[in-house]
Each structure stands twice: as structure tokens, then as C-alpha cells.
């Protein structure tokens, strides 16, 4: 048998050789799809909005409506945010040490750092 086939993905065997894997987005000359929006859902009152995924929509109005249809078909939310993916600025993964490591040795920020005499309550 020539091309290799493997049970990848949910619905079983697909070819794994000679399959195109796309071009990285930044090198593409122009966008042909509607812009990408990141979707955040508040599951119920009292909870923060949580990122659930993304979708494509031509503008904010349609993005909200698409988010409602795609991400809350089973009553998953009481509130939605859509944010243009390009409007999110993220910390660089390569900088995660300088960004987050300095917090590691500051155990005194956590209550468990402190010794409290036996029997003392409400502290």
C-alpha cells in the first residue's frame, strides 16, 4: 500500500502523507475569510467570562449573533463577548520566564506561608 493512512481525528482513518498543511497566516498576502473573533461566555451570573473558542464574522454585530448560535446552543451562557483576535495583545511565550518566574519565590504572598499558633481562629 502506498500512502500511509491513520485513524487520526474523530472519524477515523485519513491519509497522513502528501497532505497539505497550509501556509502560516502572516505570510499570506490577503485575507479571504471574514475576520477572526475570539469568543468569551459567562456561564451563569457570578462567573467571569471564559474563552471558549473563535469564529469568523464580517463585523461585531454578526460575530455576537454567530457566537450565540455556535457556542450557546445548550444554554451554556448568559452573556457573550466577542473580541477581534487581532485586538488581543499577548505576552510572548519566550518571555514567560522573565514575566512569571519572579513570582515563584514570593511565597509570603500566600496565607499558608505564615505560622499561626494552634487554636487561633478567624485568621
Amino acid at each position: 500500500m502506498s500512502a500511509e493512512v491513520r485513524a487520526e481525528g474523530g472519524h477515523g482513518a485519513v491519509p497522513v502523507e502528501g497532505v497539505a498543511t497550509g501556509t502560516p497566516t502572516p505570510t499570506r498576502a490577503s485575507r479571504r475569510d471574514w475576520p477572526l473573533w475570539e469568543v468569551f461566555v459567562r456561564g451563569r451570573r457570578g462567573l467571569a467570562h471564559t474563552h471558549v473558542g473563535s469564529l469568523h464574522a464580517p463585523d461585531a454585530t454578526m460575530a455576537l449573533r454567530n457566537a450565540r448560535d455556535v457556542y450557546t446552543r445548550r444554554q451554556e451562557g448568559v452573556s457573550l463577548w466577542v473580541v477581534p483576535a487581532a485586538a488581543i495583545t499577548a505576552s510572548s511565550p519566550d518571555e514567560r520566564d522573565p514575566f512569571f518566574a519572579p513570582a515563584a519565590d514570593k511565597a509570603y504572598r500566600h496565607p499558608t506561608f505564615y505560622e499561626v499558633p494552634e487554636g487561633v481562629q478567624h485568621l
Binding site: 471574514w34 469568523h56 464574522a57 454567530n66 448560535d69 455556535v70 446552543r73
Partner: peptide, 11 residues
């Protein structure tokens, strides 16, 4: 015309 719209029309 777009997958998102398939979902909307089905709803």
C-alpha cells in the same frame, strides 16, 4: 454561504 450561517439557519 458560511458554516456559521448553517448553524444559524438550523437554529
Amino acid at each position: 454561504p458560511q458554516l456559521e450561517e448553517d448553524v444559524a439557519l438550523a437554529n
